[in-house]
Simulated assay, not measured.
Amino acid sequence: MAETQRVVLAATPSFREMVFAPESMARLSAIGEVVILDDPGDADALMAALPGTEVLITSWGATPLTAEVLAAADRLRLIAHSASSVKHFMTDEVFRRGIRVTQAGQAMARPVAEVSLAFTLAMLHRIHRFNHTMHAGGWREDAIAPTSTGSTAGTSDAVLAQHGLAGSGIGVVGASRTGLEYIRMLVALGADVVVYDPYLTDERAAELGVRGTTLDELLRTSRVVALHAPTLPETHHMIGARELALMPDGAALVNTARSWLVDTAALLTELRSGRIDAALDVFDSEPLPADDPVRTLPNVLLTPHRAAGTVECYLEMGAITAAELERFSTGQPLQHELTQAALQQMA
Rank of each mutant, 00 (worst) to 15 (best):
M1C: 12
M1Q: 14
A2D: 03
Q5H: 14
A11Y: 07
F15A: 09
R16M: 10
V19E: 08
P22S: 13
S24A: 15
R27P: 00
L28Q: 11
S29D: 13
I31R: 14
E33Q: 15
V34N: 11
V35G: 09
V35Y: 11
D38G: 02
D39W: 01
P40T: 07
G41R: 06
G41V: 07
D44Y: 02
A45L: 10
L46F: 10
M47L: 09
L56P: 09
T58F: 06
S59P: 05
S59T: 07
S59C: 09
G61R: 06
A62L: 00
L65F: 15
A67C: 04
E68R: 15
V69H: 08
A73D: 10
A73C: 09
D74M: 09
L78S: 10
L78F: 11
S82W: 02
S82N: 10
K87E: 03
H88Y: 12
H88M: 03
H88G: 01
T91Q: 08
V94W: 02
G98W: 04
Q106M: 11
A109W: 07
R110L: 14
P111I: 05
A113T: 06
E114D: 14
V115Q: 13
A118D: 06
A118W: 08
F119D: 09
M123W: 06
H128Y: 07
N131R: 14
G137Y: 03
G137L: 00
G138Q: 10
D142I: 00
D142E: 12
A143G: 10
A145M: 04
S151D: 04
T152Y: 12
Q162I: 05
S168T: 12
G169I: 01
G169N: 15
G171L: 09
V172M: 05
V173T: 02
V173E: 01
G174W: 01
G174R: 01
S176T: 11
G179L: 02
L180Q: 15
E181C: 13
M185E: 03
A188G: 08
L200A: 08
R204Q: 11
R204S: 02
R204W: 02
A205G: 03
G212E: 02
G212H: 01
T213L: 04
D216W: 09
L219F: 11
H228P: 01
P230V: 09
E234L: 10
E234F: 05
E234H: 13
T235I: 07
H236F: 14
H237P: 01
M238F: 07
M238C: 05
M238L: 15
G240V: 00
R242I: 00
L246T: 00
D249I: 00
D249G: 07
A252I: 00
W260C: 09
L261P: 04
D263H: 04
L267Q: 05
R272G: 14
R275W: 09
D277Q: 09
L280F: 13
D281W: 05
D284C: 02
P289K: 06
A290F: 05
L297E: 07
P298V: 07
N299W: 08
V300R: 04
L301F: 13
H305L: 11
G309A: 14
C313V: 01
Y314Q: 06
E316T: 10
E324G: 02
F328L: 02
F328M: 02
F328W: 15
G331W: 03
G331P: 03
L334T: 01
Q335C: 06
H336R: 12
H336K: 03
H336V: 00
T339V: 06
Q340C: 12
L343E: 08
L343A: 13
M346V: 03
